[in-house]
Design a protein around this nucleic acid. Structure first.
Lengths: 375, 375
DNA sequence: TTTATGAATGAATCAACCG
DNA sequence: TCGGTTGATTCATTCATAA
């Protein structure tokens, strides 16, 4: 049996059951090494909170992900950046292999590392969709008064390629933001109070992320049942929120300390019941109703007159669901576009019919039809 | 007559202070080549608005059918990241040579280029002091509903080295911000209205920056009499603001079009009075809290039941902040309106939650959130 | 003269499906 | 893979025109 045959057999199983995927578990080990054990194209989203490479001494990593014990003062910062870059490219490469073709990745960082991460993301072939600013409602002040208060962190959201058809729950985000498009700057408090995990009276992890942040990310870019991988799991914010929102999760973490705290935390998180996890849906996902169906079902009669909202144009409905004016004819969309001299037109909202003393868009008829026929 | 020849003629007049520096003038020519003609360690600050390398696709239309006027100028086109990187490193290297040891550089960009710029800044030996987020008060929406509204741009502020003693007017910034430390996120409107320069009825430059942005930067990081270099001068926002604040400026620009507009503009620039400054810089409007924020932050759980004050209707909260009854769903405002058969409804006062033996409007929760997060 | 309404526009990597 | 069809999609602000 050849290699290719093995691969394709394995791929088939993964699609149906995901047999090799250790769902809802923390894998103990080095980030890159552990990722190597996960199958190709198997997860829907990756959230990564990698080391920030704060240049305060410490936190240096070799390309294999292991930590450098001591910072040699002789090293100049170019060497340091090169090592960080190698590490970054290595884990981003593995992440891209594991990610499904239509999956997306999120990475969070600060000005110390985010530019290098962003460059590596582009160089590895990802396609950046947005950069998102987490604007901290209550940041730590700059005590010395030597700079601007560092009051935000940056996240990068990217797909595997330019043509990928990634998940973005547009309608849910718009609803979450009081019927305005969700912007690229998010105001959220830092993680503190009850939410901040403690051990022996001190914070369990130095950079615990707020659940509100993961909540918005998972709601925006995954569907219930999707698999989310977090290769720098820490105290498991990703896992806790994923569980609450009925998403599967996989965490990778090296330190026993954090694993213990995370497991306890996630065990206590309660999944929401199914009706609460439902979100507002875009019409995109709804079943299509051809205009002709309305005529077949008698909601509109051939010969009926339609107009635009301002009654500038009118057209007559023909038996096959096309429209005609004196000189033009075509589908509801095409004729609307032609008359307005626009490149395109949504005929459902452009054309109106007369009903009890008022004009209504023909989309109303479509909604009525859907209500009457959908289970 | 070449650029340098013109420069040296002018320079004789300023022999004593800065012998070879062509102050308060636009130098026509290529950015890197022209910078080579400027002396070492001679300017106090550099502000740079380089090409973003946007990589746009086809035409984009608004929902109303009108076409978006895209940035399609030749100066923004680069074939590969490698070529863009090479260009970026080259001009940053020259900039660093020209900059005084205690000078600083500002560079603005978007997610298309800012990660590459940031990486190059670090690789060339600069020391990043802050990244600053320009949160646009009125960004262009995402018309197709495919991503988050791209509502910000990023600036990087860096010194020549870690040990540099750069200028930062801490008090001025704190005063400008109502006695609170100036943060790393700045809310400012995009450049439009009277300020937006026109030529033959259309915008003179596709990417003119608001004067408020340069005002804050120059006020924060230079002293009166300092020299500010802008190697991508465009229509001269940097020059106009520098003149108003009594700073010297040097502009480099390749295109005659822009030079003409800039020269006319700067000739007309007058000092701002204090009240105009305050108006321009002060934050506008009270902070908004979308309903979804309460859910993200755990003040209300998905699945919770809300009712109106008289318990005539009830609805269940979903993960995205929408509400559902048995038959309807929508935002707090929309669903309230639907149930009452009213044209509109203030969901904040209409919907209530049960709390210790009484109903309270959900607006109470919003107040609590504001109290907890506002400074 | 003042107010109401409508049109225009901004650094944008902006669709999905079927044959 | 390509091309044609269907039909989904916008916020804040300014300026011109109408009332």
């Amino acid at each position: 049996m050849g290699v290719m045959e093995r691969v394709s057999t394995r791929a088939k199983k993964a699609v149906e059951l995901r047999p090799e995927l250790p769902l809802d578990r923390i894998l103990k080990g080095d980030c890159i090494e552990t990722m190597r054990g996960l199958p190709d194209k198997s997860v829907d989203m990756i959230f990564a909170d990698p080391p920030y490479n704060l240049q305060l001494g410490g936190d240096l990593f070799r390309p294999d992900g292991s930590q450098v014990d001591a910072v040699d003062d002789e090293w100049d910062k170019f060497d340091t950046f090169a090592i960080y870059d190698k590490f970054t490219k290595a884990w981003l490469k593995e992440a891209r292999r594991i990610l499904k073709d239509d999956g997306t990745i999120w990475v969070i960082g600060s000005y110390h590392n985010i530019f290098r991460v962003g460059t590596a993301i582009q160089d590895e072939g990802y396609w950046i969709l947005n950069d998102i600013i987490w604007r901290k409602a209550n940041p730590m002040p700059n005590f010395k008064g030597t700079r601007f208060t560092n009051a935000h962190e940056t996240l990068i959201w990217a797909s595997k390629s330019e043509k990928a058809r990634y998940t973005f729950n547009y309608r849910a985000m718009k609803t979450l933001n009081d019927e305005l498009q969700m912007r690229s700057d998010w105001v959220m408090p830092i993680c503190g109070g009850q939410e901040r995990l403690k051990r022996n009276g001190t914070k369990a992890h130095p950079t615990q992320k707020p659940e509100a942040l993961l909540y918005r990310i998972l709601l925006a870019c995954t569907k219930p049942g999707d698999v989310v991988l977090d290769p720098f799991f820490g105290t498991g914010t990703t896992g806790a929120v994923a569980k609450r929102l009925n998403r599967h999760w996989i965490g990778i973490e090296r330190e026993d300390n954090y694993i213990e705290v995370a497991e306890e935390r996630i065990a206590m998180a309660l999944p929401l019941d199914e009706s609460a996890v439902v979100t507002m849906q875009s019409p995109r996902g709804a079943p299509k109703v051809p205009f002709g169906t309305l005529i077949e079902n008698g909601l509109l009669k051939p010969g009926a007159i339609l107009t635009d909202a301002k009654r500038r144009w009118q057209a007559r409905v023909r038996v096959d669901g096309s429209l005609e004016t004196g000189s033009d004819n075509g589908s509801i969309h095409k004729l609307g576009a032609t008359l307005q001299k626009a490149p395109s037109c949504n005929g459902w909202t452009f054309w109106h019919y007369e009903d009890e003393g008022g004009l209504r868009p023909i989309d109303t008829l479509r909604q009525n039809y859907l209500l009457a026929t959908q289970p």
